[in-house]
């Protein structure tokens, strides 16, 4: 699926829930599906700043595509990370760098998350885009 298709899928999934508690439960459930980062990559360099909870993110470049693994010490955060990774993992650096991320706004997460949490989410997206730009530059050199 493309990044757009992945986002539309999430937006559609969230439309099934009326109640925000159900949405939270779904987010927590998604956290359990997160491709977990290898313990050896849980280093300070892979720690994303700007979160009240900790998030570690690792990127692997394989066959021209970026694959992300991550983890967090908080479950809601883990669920949010899981959604972002579902959308962006397995895509090319160029597609990731150019991606317009709209699903967070569309499912109304921004207004429901505490500001520290949504700031954390934004710094994670920024970090992923930085990886993408870096790998894009690297692949252009090759």
């Amino acid at each position: 699926m493309t990044i757009k298709e992945q986002q539309d899928q999430i937006v559609e999934d969230f439309e099934l829930f009326d109640d925000w508690m159900d949405k939270y439960e779904y987010i927590i459930q998604l956290g359990k599906e997160l491709p977990l980062i290898d313990e050896k990559f849980k280093t300070d360099e892979n720690l994303i700043k700007g979160c009240q909870s900790k998030v570690w993110l690792h990127a692997d470049f394989k066959d021209g595509k970026l694959h992300f693994t991550a983890n967090s010490d908080a479950l809601i955060t883990k669920g949010l990370v899981s959604m972002v990774i579902q959308v962006l993992s397995g895509q090319t650096p160029k597609d990731i760098a150019d991606a317009n991320i709209y699903f967070i706004d569309e499912i109304g997460l921004q207004s429901h998350l505490s500001p520290t949490r949504s700031n954390g989410l934004l710094s994670m997206l920024k970090q992923i885009k930085l990886y993408a730009v870096a790998y894009q530059a690297k692949s252009l050199q090759q």
């Binding site: 909870s53 908080a74 809601i76 955060t77 998350l113 505490s114």
Partner: peptide, 9 residues
């Protein structure tokens, strides 16, 4: 449970 998660709920 992470305190941040509990607080948010």
């Amino acid at each position: 449970a992470h305190p941040f998660d509990v607080g948010e709920i």
